[in-house]
Simulated assay, not measured.
Amino acid sequence: MTLPNPDAESADGEEEIDYRFTLANERTFLAWMRTSLGLLAGGVAVHTLVQPFRMSGFRRAIALSCLVLAMVVAVGAYAHWRKVDAAMRRGGSLPDTVLVPILCAGITAVSLLACVAVLLR
């Protein structure tokens, strides 16, 4: 088995990058996708399994918040994966991600909704 030459160029003229970096980028993408799938499963579970709260709409709001956040994370993960791949190929700096603050704010919002719903139950 021969390892790829990190200094080689691909057929389209882009610099071939070390496969370890592309695999690391892919692992990060897959971690974001697992997070998205967890949010999707959580949203479906809340909608399907949780009994309605005394104040109507809380169950639906929690479920929809999880589902929307899952979509945002999935799309953002793909966009970030593409940007990182492009930056590595051109030898530039790696871009920052907005997924971390979005996920943090989203999970905080879902948690607050769930806390209020449980306290008012």
Score class of each variant (00 low, 15 high):
residue 95 P to L: 05
residue 95 P to E: 07
residue 81 W to A: 11
residue 82 R to L: 13
residue 109 A to R: 07
residue 72 V to R: 04
residue 99 L to E: 04
residue 6 P to T: 08
residue 111 S to P: 02
residue 108 T to Q: 11
residue 49 L to Q: 06
residue 86 A to D: 13
residue 98 V to C: 02
residue 27 R to G: 11
residue 91 G to W: 07
residue 39 L to M: 12
residue 71 M to H: 09
residue 99 L to H: 01
residue 34 R to Q: 11
residue 113 L to I: 02
residue 9 E to Y: 14
residue 105 A to E: 13
residue 89 R to G: 06
residue 15 E to V: 13
residue 17 I to H: 06
residue 44 V to H: 09
residue 116 V to I: 15
residue 121 R to K: 14
residue 99 L to F: 06
residue 16 E to W: 10
residue 89 R to V: 04
residue 55 M to W: 02
residue 58 F to Q: 03
residue 46 V to G: 00
residue 92 G to S: 14
residue 113 L to E: 02
residue 40 L to H: 05
residue 36 S to I: 00
residue 93 S to L: 14
residue 54 R to H: 10
residue 97 T to N: 01
residue 31 A to T: 14
residue 56 S to L: 12
residue 10 S to N: 15
residue 52 P to V: 13
residue 84 V to H: 06
residue 11 A to I: 12
residue 55 M to N: 13
residue 33 M to A: 11
residue 15 E to G: 04
residue 105 A to D: 08
residue 39 L to E: 05
residue 90 R to W: 05
residue 111 S to Y: 03
residue 101 P to D: 08
residue 49 L to R: 04
residue 49 L to V: 02
residue 72 V to T: 04
residue 113 L to G: 03
residue 97 T to Q: 01
residue 66 C to L: 10
residue 60 R to V: 15
residue 97 T to P: 01
residue 18 D to P: 07
residue 114 A to L: 05
residue 84 V to Y: 01
residue 5 N to E: 04
residue 35 T to Y: 04
residue 56 S to V: 13
residue 71 M to Q: 11
residue 17 I to L: 08
residue 103 L to N: 14
residue 120 L to W: 09
residue 41 A to G: 14
residue 117 A to Q: 01
residue 63 A to V: 03
residue 6 P to E: 11
residue 2 T to L: 13
residue 82 R to H: 02
residue 30 L to Y: 03
residue 13 G to Y: 07
residue 46 V to T: 09
residue 53 F to P: 01
residue 85 D to H: 08
residue 107 I to L: 15
residue 38 G to F: 01
residue 48 T to D: 14
residue 41 A to E: 07
residue 62 I to C: 04
residue 69 L to A: 09
residue 80 H to K: 04
residue 65 S to Q: 13
residue 7 D to P: 07
residue 64 L to G: 03
residue 53 F to I: 07
residue 46 V to H: 03
residue 101 P to E: 08
residue 11 A to E: 10
residue 16 E to K: 10
residue 40 L to F: 09
residue 12 D to V: 10
residue 106 G to L: 04
residue 65 S to N: 12
residue 72 V to Y: 05
residue 13 G to T: 01
residue 58 F to I: 06
residue 37 L to G: 02
residue 43 G to M: 08
residue 33 M to G: 05
residue 115 C to E: 02
residue 7 D to K: 15
residue 70 A to G: 07
residue 115 C to Y: 09
residue 5 N to A: 08
residue 35 T to H: 00
residue 76 G to V: 10
residue 24 A to I: 09
residue 59 R to L: 07
residue 15 E to C: 11
residue 9 E to V: 12
residue 107 I to W: 07
residue 32 W to C: 08
residue 107 I to A: 09
residue 28 T to I: 08
residue 55 M to S: 09
residue 36 S to F: 00
residue 118 V to D: 07
residue 58 F to A: 02
residue 41 A to D: 11
residue 65 S to T: 13
residue 49 L to N: 11
residue 44 V to L: 10
residue 32 W to M: 11
residue 4 P to T: 06
residue 66 C to Y: 06
residue 80 H to P: 06
residue 76 G to E: 00
residue 86 A to V: 14
residue 48 T to L: 10
residue 66 C to M: 03
residue 38 G to V: 05
residue 118 V to K: 10
residue 117 A to H: 03
residue 6 P to V: 12
residue 11 A to L: 11
residue 108 T to P: 06
